[in-house]
Design a protein around this nucleic acid. Structure first.
Lengths: 167, 167
DNA sequence: TATTGTTATACTCTATAACTATA
DNA sequence: TATAGTTATAGAGTATAACAATA
């Protein structure tokens, strides 16, 4: 067998294209709402939401970076913006002197609260309106395993031929 | 009823988050592959693919812009890059003196062909590997109506609190 | 030595508004 | 007037590599 089949069947193509377009349109609408309602980019919202979800309201930089897929420097940049806006604080981690702990502030939670209703409204209208309860369940059941698979398979270097540190 | 319910149930949240993360990871992997294999951004690939699909290999600028959601100027920028790289040509439309027709070149088709196998391989491995044939069918059946709904509902101005049809 | 995080830098991409030309 | 497309501009965001400090 010559490795993986070099094509997608029509059904796969349909699913793939629909997935791409649905997410693209949804993302676009959400970004607009977040910007208008709370002057937040999507990434900033994700960071705030992640902090807001945490029991302590805090995360290490590395944890945040892992969750958002970005480079460290991109996270530093965004954390800097959020800090300047008073939505988070940064402090040295207690257990590891190298680390930085990011914590959401009251203003951050407030901002999150201000933005959330509109966010949910859009997701509800755009994504879920045409789906029945059973549909939503089915969608989650389909996508959650895919997500787990994606998280597991490529540690972060889904590169076909990359190899680091050849020392 | 106070308009739309201000929350998502746990199943909806699961579906929403999985959708976002799956697409984000997939997109990231695909972008990397396109860049490495053919020095193309995702947008550029989309444009080329759209032109390659067209019977004539051509599209009007406006048609391309509509499909890629972007602003006109962003499209002009990308078309300029593709033209500079010799992957497309731009010429005045025949029927409408205002219009510009973009056409994919042989080099453009070649580039597309060079990039496609790796693209498909990634989608196959990341998205479809954990899904059965029936799953894929179900996924398409769920997402395609959502896509149609999204295309139809908000003409492009999903304003946060505007209520349309107040007539 | 490896890891955490920051900084400097360069680059890509996008949107807005002003502008030209045609319908 | 409205539409098609371009241009100028300005801003947001990202990645890379070099760096400092701690493990």
């Amino acid at each position: 067998m010559p490795d993986p089949p070099p094509s997608l069947d029509p059904v796969q193509l349909g699913a793939y294209f629909a997935l791409i377009e649905v997410t693209s349109l949804l993302r676009h609408a959400v970004e607009q709402q977040l910007r208008e309602a709370g002057d937040l980019s999507y990434v900033q919202f994700q960071l705030l939401a992640r902090l807001g979800d945490a029991p302590t309201g805090s995360h290490r930089m590395t944890d945040l970076a892992d969750g958002v897929v970005y480079s460290r420097s991109a996270l530093t940049y965004q954390a800097g913006l959020l800090e300047k806006a008073g939505l988070v604080t940064r402090a040295q981690a207690e257990d590891d002197e190298r680390g930085t702990t990011v914590t959401i502030t009251d203003a951050g939670r407030e901002r999150l609260a201000r933005v959330f209703p509109g966010h949910i409204e859009i997701v509800q209208q755009l994504l879920f309106e045409p789906l029945s309860g059973a549909d939503v369940k089915a969608l989650a059941a389909l996508l959650e395993p895919v997500r787990d698979h994606m998280r597991a398979i490529p540690p972060r270097s889904a590169a076909p031929r990359r190899r680091r540190h050849a020392s």
